[in-house]
């Protein structure tokens, strides 16, 4: 092998080692993003916002066009008119759905006003890959968002904030394999940890359940509040099936999240949790 080939292999090895070091140093545990990453995220935010808005519009338009194809065959003469009316109807339907969604969020906000302080945020981007499940929302450090704040929707738990730039925040979804949520089975109060499988599956699993714990399909899993990141009692999902771990001590439950995390549009960031004062009766008190 020539001298220049050795040099190339040496340089490649150095590059791979430096990159592996970068992988280690930029894990989820670090406190802040580098200025370069913050700049990339902030400068891409408006582009993402416009692109996702355009994509939603196109998606809605294509869906309505697909519906119209069927109508057109039956009503050739009225094709144009029907198309316009249908398009309007679709738009109205879209507004209705949006209205219902926002009303639901507003009601939830009012319902939980004494439990959480909530901030509404719109989803403007997603992880470009298929392994991880993260979303980018249009609220950042300037709005008071901080790392490790929980993110929810009226349907249930979404995830937690893992990185913040000035105008955006990155949310780690509960379906991400890096996510772990302390949880309990609502019916039996059996504790465990809900972790992501691989984002594309859309499923999570509850691990560290005692082998003889009374866990059955159909039971509901909620967050336990242990660990301090996620508030307690937030709905996560429904148990689909259970299986014993090969180790013999625990069982694992497959859980289907209540929230379809692939179609999120708006979310709530929990900026504060109000803990009610509980006065427990102490033994011996009069």
């Amino acid at each position: 092998m020539s001298r220049s080939n050795y040099k190339k292999i040496f340089l490649l090895t150095v590059l791979v080692l430096i990159t592996l070091l970068a992988v280690r140093m930029t894990s989820l545990k670090r406190e802040e993003l580098t200025p370069l990453e913050t700049a990339v995220k902030d400068s891409l935010a408006p582009v993402q916002e416009v692109t996702i808005g355009f994509a939603r519009g196109l998606h809605d338009m294509l869906s309505s066009a697909a519906n119209l194809g069927h109508l057109a065959e039956e009503n050739k003469k009225l094709k144009q008119e029907v198309r316009e009316l249908k398009s309007r109807l679709d738009r109205v339907e879209e507004y209705k759905v949006q209205n219902r969604r926002l009303k639901e969020m507003l009601q939830y906000r009012e319902f939980t006003v004494d439990k959480y302080k909530l901030m509404t945020a719109a989803v403007i981007g997603r992880d470009p890959g298929n392994w991880f499940g993260t979303i980018t929302v249009n609220r950042g450090a300037n709005d008071g968002v901080d790392k490790d704040m929980a993110v929810i929707v009226p349907g249930g738990l979404v995830g937690r904030v893992v990185a913040v730039s000035k105008h955006t925040a990155e949310v780690l979804l509960i379906t991400d394999p890096r996510s772990g949520v302390a949880a309990v089975v609502q019916q039996s109060q059996e504790p465990g940890v809900v972790e992501g499988v691989a984002n594309s599956t859309g499923m999570v699993r509850m691990i560290h359940l005692r082998r003889d714990a009374p866990v059955k399909p159909g039971q509901v899993v909620v967050s336990s509040g242990v660990g301090g990141i996620y508030p307690s009692g937030v709905r996560i999902g429904k148990i689909i099936s259970t299986e014993n771990d090969p180790g013999g001590l625990f069982q694992t439950a497959a859980v289907e999240p209540f929230v379809d995390l692939r179609v999120l549009r708006e979310v709530f960031i929990v900026t504060a949790v109000y803990t009610p004062e509980v006065n427990l009766p102490l033994e011996g008190n009069e």
Binding site: T19, L20, T26, L33, K41, D127, P128, F132, A163
Partner: peptide, 15 residues
């Protein structure tokens, strides 16, 4: 570029 947009574990996509 993908890693910078993702913001974590920089180098996974690069390698």
């Amino acid at each position: 570029m993908t890693d910078f947009l993702t913001g974590h574990y920089i180098g996974l996509n690069a390698l």
